[in-house]
Write a protein that binds this DNA or RNA. Sequence first.
DNA 1: GGTAGACCTGGACGC
DNA 2: GCGTCCAGGTCTACC
Length: 291
Amino acid sequence: MTVLLAVRPDFSLPAVVRSHGWIQMVPFAELPDGGLSYIVRLSCGIVVRFTVQAITSGLRVDTTDILSVEEQSELQETITWMLGLEQDFGKFYQLARQEPKLAKMVERKAGRVLRSPTLFEDVIRTILTTNTLWQHTLKMCRELVRRFGDPLPTNHDLHAFPTPERLALENEATFREQIRMGYRAPYVVNLAQVVASGVLDLEDYKTSSLPMPQLRKELMKIIGVGGYAAANLLMLLGRYDYVPVDSWALKVVSNEFFGGAPITPKQVLTTFERWGEWQGLAYWFWDWKVN
DNA sequence: GGTAGACCTGGACGC
DNA sequence: GCGTCCAGGTCTACC
């Protein structure tokens, strides 16, 4: 079935889809026209594949199944969150237009960051990106989805991202041996268990009114989420007043602003401080020198 | 608050 | 084929 969605004038679907590496991780996939394909498990338990494509009047959403009114509504809410359709970048674009290194991103209508349907999923993905090579991250995610995600009824080779409840049934050894997660295994087990049991309501953070420093502290209470991971999650939550500093950030900021000399994470943060509530975005979409 | 070392995997490299 | 080195963040212990 087909559903149409309206978007703001500053929205670009390919810009969101290609905003970062999530699109390379199952069950995300990019369509040839820059659109999005994703397999989602709705709250009623059905697994649906949907595609999103840009059309003149906004977005066209096609699903593999006929959905009830409630399911359609849930799917629309999910897509709105995933693509950041609710976000307004007017104020940021005004500032960014005055910075040559951000001119291209304004032109591309970039700024939105592709999100998973749930924060639980984004936390797991983020943990899988830490302290390893990107190819290993992709492999861990692929195996996690293939082994524990509910299959698409029309194609059992495709799966939705596993639920906290499903992952909470597994133990550390399974994740170490089958998913090759290494020391990250207890982090994932713990997160699945606290979310599945209701001890931690991660999805509540999507609408949290906590100031950034407190929200960052809350995120860092999750075992396996340190400074970088928390900053990355803040970006995904639409909080852009902090920069996710990893080894890449140290490298590009050093090359751009410090002549390639070794720098500290604090120097990265100081460099982007002037962007205030938008510093995360300014860093993320900066037109970095490529060496 | 800052620092050092352990934790894991997988790719690159030398033998 | 085997061993070694390295990259990549987080946690814990210690100062």
